[in-house]
Design a binder for these strands. Structure first.
Lengths: 347, 347
DNA sequence: TTGAAAGCGCTAACAC
DNA sequence: GTGTTAGCGCTTTCAA
């Protein structure tokens, strides 16, 4: 049998309540009593039963992180930061993988882990505004990514339109004029692929360059194979681009691969910019220019927002001012794939 | 107020026990009763309180996965598989990051999450045999990686010595004679770096090649920067290697980067083999030859072993036969970094 | 096939 | 500063 608070109380010759006070760091406990209790705890190797505590307190100390897949580098890096930040708040993180499946995402916002978690941080891929509006579960929730503006939930984003515009403008600034975009998707407004395309178009417009649909390549997903295939398709038709803006770094790594296979020089013949600043891009050949969202900030803000909701009473609602939308910062990191070797080594 | 089982019972006009029976799929419930209860559950949107259930049952349905860092590609990929496998067993996975810090690893095997989890899957980096022997916590546990043979815990590994030997032998088979090893570490016997070095030495010995300490480069960690620096050091002194065996793919990616910067041709001047078969290596330039452990198998076996322990009664002990050590399979994937472009495209 | 009662281990409320 | 009491929501006896 596991030792309980009661056992400790008996051994220390005090009441259960006193043990509870000591365990929970209540200050008004006489030093001598405290040390006696602590000694008993040590001898019995007592550990509080978290289920019982949760039942009583109505809080579990656990939050859920739901991402499409844990081994997509961007989500892996985000997860690392989120787990660290959550830890600082005394939260343990459990992980759900949605695989970007809508039904799965629906279940999760519907309260799949309802009674197990204090809150939920979700990076949705397929969820619609309607799904969110229909949500009845009141578990505190924070959304990550550009998905849904003005939705009914707190929300951490970066300004994807501006970032995509900056990335494209960087290519234009290098004198490129036939700039391709890889990663377009037929998805609802507000989704990542859409807003990044919007930023791309805006940069072209601002520079007085034409928008040429033949230079815009859709991909099913955002992975290396998609990037490689998209670049191959571009090289096999005209007009031939002199630069490529990829909607993710992983796509861009596939692009670099195809360019290397075809003997196309980067950046001399084709300059490449990605998005996400994953670690691989800092050591690829060539190193990858990219938009770098401040992932740690995203993680910190997300956990803070969640904490606010929990403190506020777990109503699932934002405060009177309505749901918050917080913009995290990003920077453009120009590396070899646009600047060439003059860009220096890994950064 | 959240709806409880009691509310459902009242609405359905039955006792709490009957609701419980329905919720838990107990068979001996009259169909009419069952449907009445199910209706009540639906109208009230009832969800069982998992804390209460855990408290009563003594099981939480949660297991912990402890890895050094979630954004190291190998662990990210492993985590993806583990979460999927755990899901198939009805388990939710919570994640702890140890950062490879011994004290942190000690806390975790010591029962940090003791009362929150049914079991623990740990990929230790710094733990000693002594730490494990001193463990008193009885939470079911499975260890991942080559760390400790004949230790007091169930354990999933691949045969690192054989795999490292195969990798090195592959290089020897290509006619290389000055084969460097990157990733050596001054660590206790049985740890990854040690066993891989052992396999390297064995391959050399079998081929009648001398073991040359100048070709063995230690690294603090296993990351891209370490690989890049190690390769730079090798190029700046003699003998100059004509091949490199890296103890991880991430190291190898750093190595490829340095070789590209220095204008050294791969594999013509230097052939490179890594270890782990992370996704990046399938699209790097050149693609990376590597040892590919069957990560899905590792995940499946680990979860199965944990499940066996839990079923057996959570004693933390293996069965009468003692702790089990299960070997997962691996394959050598020869790609461009050893075969050249004849090796074909991404595989 | 269903119900009544007890209690898992903890903490909140209140008394002393 | 410490003890007593009650009860969080569920499942497990045991009885009907």
């Amino acid at each position: 049998m596991r030792t309980t608070l009661r056992d400790v109380a008996e051994l220390a010759g005090v009441s259960p309540k006193t043990v509870s006070n000591v365990v929970n760091g209540y200050v008004h406990v006489r030093a001598s009593t405290r040390s006696r209790v602590e000694e008993a705890i040590a001898t019995l190797n007592y550990r509080p039963n978290l289920s019982a505590r949760s039942l009583r307190r109505g809080r579990t100390g656990v939050i859920a992180l739901a991402v499409p897949e844990l081994d997509v580098p961007y989500f892996a890096e985000l997860a690392r930061h989120l787990v660290s930040e959550a830890d600082r708040h005394g939260w343990t993180v459990l992980v759900d993988q949605t695989e970007g499946v809508q039904e799965r995402e629906r279940q999760i916002i519907g309260g799949l882990r309802d009674q197990l978690i204090d809150g939920l941080i979700l990076s949705p891929l397929a969820l619609t505004v309607g799904d969110l509006a229909a949500r009845t579960d009141s578990t505190p929730m924070v959304l990550l990514g550009e998905r849904i503006h003005n939705g009914p939930a707190d929300h951490v984003v970066i300004d994807n339109v501006a970032a995509a515009r900056d990335a494209t403008a960087h290519l234009i600034g290098l004198g490129r004029t036939r700039i391709a975009a890889i990663g377009a998707q037929e998805v609802p407004e507000g989704m990542t692929a859409r807003v990044r395309l919007e930023g791309y178009r805006r940069a072209l417009a601002e520079a007085g360059l034409p928008y040429d649909e033949r230079l815009v390549v859709p991909t099913d997903r955002f992975d290396r194979a998609d990037g490689a295939a998209a670049m191959a398709a571009l090289l096999d038709r005209s007009p031939r681009p002199d630069a490529v803006f990829c909607f993710s770094d992983v796509l861009a790594l596939g692009v670099l691969r195809t360019l290397a296979e075809r003997g196309v020089r980067v950046p001399e013949d084709v300059a490449v910019v990605g998005f996400d600043d994953i670690q691989d891009g800092r050591y690829s050949v060539p190193t990858l220019s990219t938009i770098s969202p401040d992932k740690q900030q995203i993680a910190r803000v997300a956990v803070d927002l969640l904490n606010q909701q929990v403190v506020r009473g777990g109503s699932g609602q934002a405060d009177a001012a309505g749901p918050q939308e917080i913009f995290a910062s990003y920077t453009l990191k120009a590396r070899e794939s646009t600047l060439g070797r003059s860009g220096g080594g890994p950064s």
